[in-house]
């Protein structure tokens, strides 16, 4: 049996993503909550892409896993860090010097890629929830508003309310002040998104072409808009921003 498919699995802290490649063509993708069982989430993601294409698991030549739970995928042939996989996945869409900003559920990454595709450097920020998906979840909770409605709400805002604090706990007390002052909900939500953008700009000068990826970007395009506004430049986003890590893993799987 020809085994020309490769699978990339990105087992992130919040979501598990899969990309199935047929040669260099992305033929199926899946997405699940990682939950408390990384192995099960990875398994389910694999089943989903296999079903989508109508092949059997045996037709997958190689699987590479990445992400926080990468070592939990016992059927993977290799594990590679999410830094390398995000870089590879993004470079596939933007094959030139880029600065990647990935906003994940629990951490942010800035990865600087040279024209050749070599990585120049990277930074991770996971000391606290500030600027990550976890921060937005906290905010949604405090505001008793579904996470999925934040983007739409923020889009209705016209003002320029800011949250000044660094830390999630302080930001939440600022929220209380805004609520007490009768600030409309959309303005508060937009302020939270603006704060996510600010935390990113504090991580790196973000030189050259900037590409944004990750689950937060996929579900909340307003983050890109606000970050671009703060940066004063256009920020690009790949077609499937939440799947860049999985795509990179699948590409790496084709190489070995």
């Amino acid at each position: 049996m020809a085994k020309h498919y490769t699978l990339g699995l990105d087992v992130g802290a919040s979501a598990t993503k899969a990309v199935l490649l047929d040669g260099d063509v992305d033929v199926a993708r899946s997405l699940r909550k990682s939950g408390a069982n990384f192995a099960a989430a990875a398994q389910a993601c694999r089943e989903e892409v296999v079903e989508t294409v109508g092949i059997s698991v045996d037709e997958i030549g190689r699987t590479v896993s990445t992400g926080y739970g990468r070592r939990s995928v016992d059927f993977a042939d290799n594990t590679v860090t999410e830094i390398t996989c995000h870089a590879r996945g993004c470079y596939a869409s933007f094959p030139h010097a880029i600065t990647i900003v990935d906003i994940g559920g629990q951490d942010n990454k800035v990865i600087v890629i040279e024209d050749s595709g070599d990585r120049k450097n990277f930074k991770m920020n996971r000391k606290c929830a500030a600027g990550t998906g976890a921060f937005l979840e906290e905010i949604a909770n405090s505001l008793d508003t579904p996470l999925s409605s934040l983007n739409e709400l923020a889009a209705q805002a016209t003002g320029d309310v800011e949250l000044g604090s660094f830390c999630t706990v302080f930001a939440k007390t600022e929220l209380l002040k805004l609520i007490a002052a009768g600030t409309p909900l959309p303005e508060i939500v937009k302020a939270a998104f603006r704060s996510v953008g600010r935390r990113i700009l504090e991580m790196d000068p973000l030189q050259g072409d900037v590409v944004m990826t990750g689950g937060v970007v996929a579900h909340n395009p307003i983050v890109v808009e606000l970050a671009a506004e703060a940066l004063g430049r256009v920020i690009q986003v790949p077609d499937h921003p939440q799947h860049t890590g999985a795509l990179g893993a699948a590409i790496i799987a084709t190489e070995k």
Binding site: T81, I83, T84
Partner: peptide, 12 residues
């Protein structure tokens, strides 16, 4: 976090 960073650095 440290482990991932070190592994990624070695990959780089």
């Amino acid at each position: 976090q440290a482990k991932t960073q070190i592994e990624a650095f070695v990959e780089q």
